[in-house]
Computed example of a mutant assay.
Amino acid sequence: MDAIAVVLASLLALGSPVGVVVDKLAADAIRDQLVAAEALQVRVDNASTLQLLNGRLERVRIAGQGLYPVADFRINRFALESDPIDVSIGALRRGEIALDRPLQAAMHLELREADLNQFLQSAWLQQQLQALEFALPGQTAREANRYEFTNPRLALLPDNRLQLALDLQDTVSADTLPIELEVGVAIASGHQLQLLDPVLTVDGQVVPAQVLRSLLGGMQSRLSLRQLEDSGIGMRVLQFAIQDNSLDIVMFVKVEPSSPWLME
């Protein structure tokens, strides 16, 4: 939703642009917030210049391909279409974002397997993995530092399943232990991520189902988009599909005027 705020701030700073000028200014403003964009189009629909100057947009449509919101993370396709938007014009001119009514939009994301694996191999994610501590039973904290997770990789499989693999490496002996998790993924009631029929193998040996259930049991309740509601963000997944080595997600997003995310 920051993209829409950037659009409004840029247009208001330049007075009252109209037509294709509005669309170009909006696209340039969003492009400046990205690391890179292979293709980006923005369409701003407005009934009048007066409405724009009063902080109202009838609709914003954004379509992009090959977008990099951060380094090494590529979104293959992105589309967003908003409902009418009302913001506080005074707050916006002070560099703040304040909504006069909730902001609502439909969003479509397509993520490719190759792009996700590029991110998994990024320097930033490698640092996060190395910061994780893994201790075998009976080991001291000092001994735990000798193990680290390396070489993460992802495979998108048919029937909405995916496989996540990585290696547990002993930094002293250089021995590695391959770990693979294959699991089905579904969205229940538009917000609850479900892990279906998981299979975990460690060094080629299947972990017993009862052990795996105990490992994943406490995770399910935390995998809900409803946790964002306390921050004034409502998200509902309308479509979730893995097909042709891509992850396709369509969702509805609602941002309340009271959301602290608007202050960041």
Rank of each mutant, 00 (worst) to 15 (best):
R153C: 06
F252R: 10
G64S: 08
D115L: 02
Q163K: 10
L34W: 04
E133C: 08
T49W: 00
N117H: 06
S221P: 09
R93L: 13
V70A: 06
I233W: 01
R226Q: 14
L132A: 13
A71T: 14
L238D: 15
N245T: 14
V255T: 07
P260Q: 09
L225M: 10
P152W: 06
W124H: 13
A144T: 10
V87N: 02
L14Y: 12
Q194S: 10
L238E: 15
M251G: 11
I85Y: 00
L157F: 01
D170I: 12
V7I: 11
D244S: 15
E133Y: 04
S231A: 13
A29H: 00
L132Y: 03
V206L: 05
N76T: 15
L103A: 05
Q239H: 12
L116A: 08
Q243D: 14
D230C: 08
Q128N: 03
A105R: 00
S224E: 08
I187V: 15
L164N: 03
A36V: 02
E110G: 04
D170V: 13
A209S: 15
K24T: 15
V22S: 03
S82I: 07
R61W: 01
E182P: 00
L154V: 02
L25K: 11
A209T: 15
F78E: 01
L193T: 09
Q104V: 11
R161C: 01
L11P: 01
T176N: 05
G234R: 09
F73S: 11
L225T: 08
L177N: 09
F252C: 05
S173C: 06
T201Q: 07
V35M: 09
I62Q: 01
V87R: 04
H191T: 15
L215C: 04
Q210A: 15
E229V: 08
L216V: 04
S122F: 00
R56A: 13
A241P: 00
G90R: 06
V250M: 10
S122N: 07
D83V: 04
Q118G: 11
V202F: 00
V6K: 02
R112L: 12
A165E: 14
F134D: 08
E264T: 11
D32A: 15
I187G: 02
G90F: 00
P102E: 08
G138M: 10
V172R: 07
L111K: 04
L162Y: 02
S221M: 13
S122T: 08
Q33L: 15
P137I: 12
E96N: 11
M1P: 02
G204T: 03
A209K: 10
L116R: 00
V237S: 02
R146S: 13
D28S: 05
Q163G: 04
L177Q: 13
S82C: 06
L80T: 02
W124S: 15
P158G: 09
A105L: 11
L103H: 01
Q104C: 09
S82L: 03
Q118D: 13
R74L: 14
L92H: 07
Q41W: 01
E113V: 05
L92I: 14
P178G: 11
E256Q: 13
